[in-house]
């Protein structure tokens, strides 16, 4: 009797916590779909706000997806080799670099953005292009890629695996391609998810770096909340969800490991 009572209490508490987290999401989605939020759901459901967001802010969505994917490509190209080198070198310098890489995460985004503007702001072609935002995002997300790949590389005995491959005749490039990359797949996936989601949602640095022509999704969202109806802001969030979920699922699926099956020959004896 007593255990059942305890179980019910735990269940109630768990549901309460879930509700606390999920209800705002549902409310926000509903707000984006109701005709008039102040009147409530009785005013009816509509896709009008979603369409308005689509027509007015479509470009910010595509820009955000574009920047986050570009950011992913750059962090993959820089981050994996960096992690590889850091994993192979045990020197104090390597450890220092590892720590320094995390600095852009600790420093407030606004400060990083200001530093970028002060340094490169006068290069007008660069300042007004989306690449300017990309640089900020790469600075901010790179440590997440390096750290997650490095963690995986440190967990496997990378040196011995490479020596094993080398003894079988594999050149440096073959070893990197056949052994190093596949074995840090989990780290690359974790890092990629972090990079894409962080870049997609990054606001405080982007808010300073953007220009009216390079508005990203979170900046547009802030605009919408500040200057338009609440319904539009909520519809915006809904669109954001719909855009990012397939992207993240695709990333997951892409990183699934596959083993090839060995089929023994019927006649081995020849």
């Amino acid at each position: 009797m007593r255990t059942k009572w305890l179980f019910n209490l735990q269940l109630a508490f768990t549901l309460l916590v879930c509700a606390f987290l999920i209800v705002p999401v549902i409310l926000s989605i509903m707000a984006g779909l109701t005709v008039n939020y102040l009147v409530g759901i009785e005013s009816g459901l509509t896709l009008r706000w979603v369409m308005e967001v689509w027509n007015g802010y479509r470009n910010t969505i595509f820009l955000s997806i574009g920047i986050s994917l570009a950011c992913l490509v750059v962090t993959l190209l820089i981050g994996i080799p960096t992690a590889y080198v850091l994993a192979r070198r045990q020197s104090a310098l390597a450890r220092a670099i590892e720590e320094l890489l995390v600095m852009p995460v600790a420093v407030p985004g606004l400060a990083t953005a200001l530093a970028l503007i002060v340094t490169y702001g006068s290069l007008s072609g660069f300042r007004t292009s989306w690449a300017f935002i990309l640089v900020g995002h790469v600075l901010f997300t790179l440590p997440f890629m390096v750290r997650s790949v490095l963690a995986v590389l440190m967990a496997i005995d990378l040196n011995t695996l490479e020596e094993g491959a080398a003894s079988l005749g594999a050149s440096w490039w073959r070893r990197f391609r056949d052994i190093v990359l596949p074995n840090c797949r989990a780290g690359i996936l974790a890092g990629s998810l972090m990079v894409v989601t962080l870049s997609m949602g990054e606001f405080n640095m982007t808010w300073l770096l953007h220009t009216p022509f390079t508005k990203t999704l979170p900046v547009g969202l802030a605009d919408a909340y500040a200057s338009l109806r609440l319904e539009i802001g909520s519809a915006y969030t809904l669109v954001f969800f719909l855009m990012i979920m397939p992207l993240l699922l695709a990333l997951q699926a892409f990183a699934q490991p596959r083993l090839k099956k060995f089929v023994a020959e019927d006649d081995i004896h020849e």
Partner: peptide, 25 residues
């Protein structure tokens, strides 16, 4: 001559088998 061109077979204490490949691979 680097190891990859020496054509020597090596067996390591930790085996150094590739976790991303099957036994046959």
């Amino acid at each position: 001559t680097p190891i990859e061109q020496r054509n020597v077979g090596m067996v390591f204490q930790s085996y150094a088998l590739f976790p991303n490949m099957s036994v046959a691979e």
